[in-house]
Structure formats: C-alpha cells, structure tokens
Design a protein around this nucleic acid. Structure first.
Ligand code: MG
Length: 231
DNA sequence: CAGTGTTTACGTCAAA
DNA sequence: TTTGACGTAAACACTG
C-alpha cells in the first residue's frame, strides 16, 4: 500500500481486536509463543496504523495479555535470556473467532479454576452492589489475593501482611498449573486457615468448601456482611 | 531506568 | 434496559 502520511487507505484501523492481532502473532510464530516485543513487531510490520501512538496501543495490548485468560505466560529457559516471559495461547481457549468477527468474541475465555474467576462469578452481585474491587472481597473472604492484587490490599489495610498459615513466615503466593494457588495463605486476622489446595479437582474437601461458599452467596450481601463483621 | 506485567476505572457499543 | 466485550488511561510493582 501507498506511502503517504496521514489518511492513506492502509493507515486505517484494521478490523481486528487486540486479542485477534495478538493471537495472529502467536500462531504465526514457529514456537507458538512470543515475547512481548515480538508481538509488537509483528503488528507494526503488517499494520501501518500501529506505527503511531505506540505508547497508547501497546499499553492496551499489555492490558489484554494480562487480563485475558486466553493468554498465558511461558517462563524463559535459562538459555534464553531476555526481558519478560513468552506469551502463548491457553490450550483450552479453542477457536476464539468461530463467529466471523475478529473484533468481538461471543464470550471471553475464563479459566474455570482460577480463584479470582470463581470469586468473581459467585460474588458477582456483591461486587456490583458494593462497588468494592475484587481484591477487597477476596481479602475479606480470606482467600489468597493473586499476584499484585496484594499490593492493593496492603495499601488499603496496611496492618495486614501475607504470611504462611502455619509458619507465620511471609511468603509469596505459590501457583500450580492454571494459576491455581496451591498453598493456602492467610492474614493475621483470619486465625487459622487450613493449608489445603483450593482447586476443586485436587481436593474433595476444598470442593465442598467452595460449594458451601457458593450456596452462601446465592442470597446476596448477607454472607459478605458476616465476613466483614468477622474481620 | 526502561520494559514488562497487573489491576482498577470508565466510556462505548451491540447483543441479549 | 441490562449485560458483556472491547478500548483506553492510569497507577503501581517488578525485573534485567
Ligand atoms: Mg493472561
């Protein structure tokens, strides 16, 4: 396509969402995974539209990588030094563009066992009605707050530290496959929380716990209130 | 420090 | 009208 500056045809915004563009880049690669910088390159090489305002759209792209469960991080091997991780497509996310549109999917892929998705689904009404951020509700429920959400929590409740429920030693969240927290952590106000796996598939006990939690929340705010009062 | 990653907030738009 | 997907801005935290 032509060269000229502002308003040439090829400079128009391509009919692809960031998710589409990123998936294209990943699928096009030999290893089916790419570092962030290579995703940028792929897009910029093919779509002149994205050769400008790079700070804006690259911020949006990173937001999409992190926010959408269909994108997962693959750690670098020691023999592959570099900045971040590799990004790949979650094996269960299927064909995201089954409907002809590359702009909007029918539904977002959400991993069913990610604790933040479980809480987000079961406490949807509470989250909406209260306006509280997900991190707050998870904290009040005594759940491990994933990754950097903990910084939000510690800024809202500076007296609360994240520590191992048995040893009392500060730890960082430890995640197993699919981002499921393997080690149950608790904060001082939560007294004793059993260090059991939260993944229902891994522990029948945890499964019934989850079921109980779910049934408690179907009625609405009541259960959250009791939890709030408790802490 | 610059690049990478995570989360919240808000606006838009189309489907349900 | 409500819901959900998407884009954008922005505030941080973490890392090489
Ligand atoms: Mg992700």
């Amino acid at each position: 396509m032509p060269r000229p500056g502002k308003s040439s045809y090829s400079d128009q915004k391509p009919p692809y969402s960031y998710i589409s563009l990123t998936a294209m880049a990943i699928q096009h690669s030999a290893e089916k995974m790419l570092p962030l910088s290579d995703i940028y390159k792929f897009i910029m090489e093919r779509f002149p539209y994205y050769r400008e305002h790079t700070q804006r759209w690259q911020n949006s792209l990173r937001h999409n990588l992190s926010f959408n469960d269909c994108f997962i991080k693959i750690p670098r091997r020691p023999d592959q030094p570099g900045k971040g991780s590799f990004w790949a497509l979650h094996p269960d996310c299927g064909d995201m563009f089954e409907n002809g549109s590359f702009l909007r999917r029918r539904k977002r892929f959400k991993h069913p066992f990610a604790i933040e998705n479980i809480i987000g689904r079961d406490y949807k009404g509470v989250l909406q009605a209260s306006g509280l951020p997900l991190a707050s509700v998870m904290h009040h429920l005594g759940y491990t707050v994933p990754s950097q959400l903990s910084s939000v929590v510690s800024s809202m409740w500076p007296h609360v530290g994240v520590m191992d429920s048995v040893s009392g030693v500060p730890v960082s969240p430890d995640y197993g496959p699919f981002g499921v927290p393997v080690k149950a952590l608790c904060h001082p106000s939560a007294q004793t929380m059993p260090a059991v796996p939260i993944c229902p598939a891994a522990s029948p006990a945890a499964a019934s716990l989850l079921e109980q939690t779910a049934s408690n929340t179907t009625e609405g705010k009541g259960s959250l209130h009791s939890v709030l009062v408790h802490s």
